[in-house]
């Protein structure tokens, strides 16, 4: 209904503007030419509209930064500060350029709008100017590239230590599973050809390393400990996107991909952070007023999540896994309660 109303309003708005332009046309003296080529008056009018448009554009940019940049998700991994710093430097730089360039474009459109008797300057070339606006981007971009590449290689080349927790993230239409390596610290061999019955991740039952592997539906991570994820998909491409940890990697059937990070903020800490308290409060207000939600869905508590970010089928929009970041002790307690693969197969 609201959509219909909005469409109606839009259409009426359009008709109004059309009618106004018609009135303008009719109100002009009869002798005004109808060649459909911009006249002196058109140039004046359109040039001024460019000024009005500039106000709109800058207003929109200010509005967006003012009231939408709060959506930028807080970081919670050891490289998220570096990431955010590079992001904001780049963003600052491009907005600096944007503000200047857009001003020039629209100001020139206004300032040099055609006037009777005005003569344009024949100005075809200037090597010095061309050189300047080639070299400045070259230098700036070189700096950005070098900075970016350092961060890139730091993030992508995970230095595995004895302490590194290796976790397999397993994707299928339309859910995730996590597999921990258990006591021996080694993930057992797996292939889709071993999938049968309860063995949903295709572990090789004759591989001793597989026996103590633990398969879970939630991802629990100890805080401040490096995690190396090994991604495996059983059917189509998926993408494991951890927005709060500034991490993402595609999950590709037929090969194992990897990505590592160190979570630095526990779920409890981020839930109690000033930013999240306010955000969740706001969300819960929205949810209270949402009639589509059942009574038990109205209260939302923040949890980290992993979501699928590569189109993977009809339920792509709801392929998520809860992530819990907790202290080492809490993690050890939780993992010891999980069933091993050996126990799982023995049951059946």
């Amino acid at each position: 209904m609201t959509a219909l109303l909005i469409i109606l309003v839009a259409a009426l708005l359009g008709i109004t503007i059309w009618q106004i332009s018609k009135i303008f046309k009719l109100s002009q003296p009869i002798e005004s030419d109808d060649s459909q080529i911009a006249t002196n008056e058109d140039n004046q009018k359109q040039g001024k509209i460019f000024l009005v448009f500039t106000v709109f554009l800058y207003g929109l940019m200010i509005y967006s930064f003012w009231s939408l940049s709060k959506f930028y998700a807080p970081g919670a991994s050891s490289h998220s500060d570096d990431y955010d710093q590079l992001f904001f430097i780049s963003l600052g730089l491009i907005m600096f350029v944007q503000v200047i360039i857009q001003f020039l474009i629209h100001w020139f459109a206004y300032k040099y709008r055609g006037k009777k008797g005005q003569k344009a300057l024949f100005y075809a070339d200037n090597d010095k100017l061309e050189f300047i606006w080639t070299i400045i981007p070259v230098i700036t971009l070189a700096a950005l590239i070098i900075y970016g590449l350092f961060s890139w290689s730091e993030i992508m080349n995970v230095q595995e230590t004895d302490d590194t927790l290796v976790v397999e993230i397993y994707a299928y239409q339309f859910d995730w599973r996590a597999r921990y390596s258990g006591e021996d610290g080694t993930l057992g061999e797996a292939n889709v050809r071993f999938i049968e019955g309860i063995n949903q991740l295709g572990l090789n039952e004759s591989d001793p390393y597989a026996q103590d592997d633990k398969i879970t539906t939630e991802l629990h991570l100890p805080v401040d400990r490096q995690v190396l994820f090994k991604f495996r998909s059983q059917d189509v491409l998926h993408s494991a996107y951890f927005p709060f940890f500034r991490s993402q990697m595609n999950v590709v059937p037929g090969m194992t991909t990897q990505f590592g990070f160190t979570p630095t903020t526990t779920s409890k800490e981020i839930r109690n952070s000033e930013y999240m308290v306010e955000k969740v409060k706001n969300i819960n207000e929205i949810r209270q007023n949402n009639d589509n939600l059942g009574p038990d869905e109205k209260d939302y508590e923040f949890e980290y999540y992993l979501l699928c970010n590569k189109i993977c089928g009809v339920s792509h929009y709801n392929m998520q896994m809860k992530i819990v970041v907790e202290t080492e002790e809490e993690y050890q307690k939780w993992i010891s309660e999980q069933q091993t693969f050996g126990e799982l197969t023995a049951q059946n």
Binding site: I37, A38, D42, N43, Q46, G47, I101, L104, I105, F108, A109, Y112, R113, G114, K115, Q118, K119, A120, L121, Y123, L129, E130, W133, T134, P137, V138, L141, L144, I145
Partner: peptide, 27 residues
Amino acid sequence: TLLIAIPSGVKAFNYITTLWKGNLQLN
């Protein structure tokens, strides 16, 4: 990829300089 920004930038600056001190017919 970032190299592409250079010729793209040149084009944008050249358009702006073309507008400068013109006698713009705002068709």
